[in-house]
Design a protein around this nucleic acid. Structure first.
Length: 317
DNA sequence: ATGCAGTCCTGTAAGC
DNA sequence: TGCTTACAGGACTGCA
């Protein structure tokens, strides 16, 4: 499931693969996506060049521009952008023309968008890879999608609507502590709340809590100042490590080069129910907390009073 | 304010 | 072997 480290890997891969390439044609499967593609966008995009690939939380942003007489209008606030979310099974990859489909299963299965790309003619835009090919969006469960924004203003509005909180490394400690102190929600729910801290999904929430030795069922407001600081610090380091390992491939995730990540081999609790904790050897448990499966070590992460597998909330405090 | 169930979606695995 | 069912969960909606 693509979380921040996976999306960052895709962004970095695409940065070297599609930068400076021009959209020659767009194909859409016609299937409904969570983030709906609209008829007409296909033709609108022809002739635009990809100038930059960025990431914000779990979102990818491809900045586009057209060549003007003398210069690229990258500074122009009228430049459009493609905003992509990978949902749970989304893949955004570049496939060189003539190379075979390695996405598995039936070739081209679950592909919803294809952008035919050709290297830019002449200079003006840095370009690393000179091969023509296609940027392809594949999504088995269709929880993701790609959206077109017409200009910088629309892009700002798009993200304002989602009210994304800071990423772990941009999160100010005092702001984080205040956010936790000000709510009685379960800490697991707060970690998954993209408006409080962005980029964390189920896998890295569990890993961060384990690293910080905090039980997912703890009430946010009961965390000590030291625990709150430790959790933020661990969320930061867990995510950085995952980025170094190009993300976790549990099932469907691949980077922009269509390669698997390797961080799944470094996970300490996620997906390890019944196996020994890598830190202390106690058996890793799995409870459903805030509607999400949550893995933790019962010895390293002490459960709050009254919390149990059948009643994670622990009744009233 | 908060939890929670339901919604979308399909491949996989377990159970019968 | 073939069927049904549960499950995975990011983001969102509606309801209690």
């Amino acid at each position: 499931m693509p979380e921040l480290p996976e999306v960052e890997t895709v962004a970095r891969d695409l940065q070297s693969l599609v930068l400076g390439k021009t959209i020659q044609d767009v194909w859409w499967s016609g299937k409904k996506l969570r983030l709906p593609w609209q008829k007409g966008w296909d033709s609108d995009l022809r002739g635009f060049t990809i100038l930059e690939v960025k990431r914000r939380a779990k979102w990818l942003v491809l900045h586009l521009a057209k060549k003007k007489v003398l210069q690229w209008d990258i500074q122009c606030r009228e430049s459009p952008a493609l905003v992509a979310h990978l949902g749970m099974t989304g893949q955004l990859t570049f496939l060189r023309r003539g190379c075979s489909d390695t996405s598995g299963g039936v070739p081209g299965d679950h592909v919803h968008l294809r952008f035919d790309l050709i290297p830019a003619q002449g200079g003006g835009v840095k370009s690393v890879d000179r091969h023509p090919g296609e940027l392809r969006f594949r999504d088995i469960r269709r929880f993701g999608g790609i959206h077109l924004v017409r200009n910088a203003h629309e892009l700002e509005k798009f993200f304002e609507k989602h009210r994304l909180g800071p990423e772990p490394w941009d999160c100010q400690l005092e702001q984080w502590r205040n956010a936790l102190a000000g709510t009685n929600r379960l800490i697991k729910a707060v970690l998954l709340d993209q408006t409080v801290i962005s980029g964390v999904g189920n896998i890295y929430a569990d890993e961060s809590l384990h690293a910080a030795r905090i039980h997912p069922c703890r009430r946010s407001s009961t965390l000590t100042r030291r625990e709150a600081a430790r959790l933020l610090e661990k969320a930061d380091s867990v995510m950085r490590q995952a980025i170094e390992n190009r993300g976790s491939t549990i099932r469907d995730y691949v980077g922009g080069e269509n390669l698997n990540g390797s961080h799944q081999e470094s996970l300490l609790v996620y997906g390890r129910e019944g196996l020994p904790c890598m830190s202390c050897g106690a058996e890793v448990q799995r409870w459903v907390v805030s509607g999400r499966s949550s893995h933790f070590c019962p010895r390293c992460q002490k459960a709050p009073q009254g919390a149990s597998k059948d009643s994670p909330m622990g009744g009233q405090d």
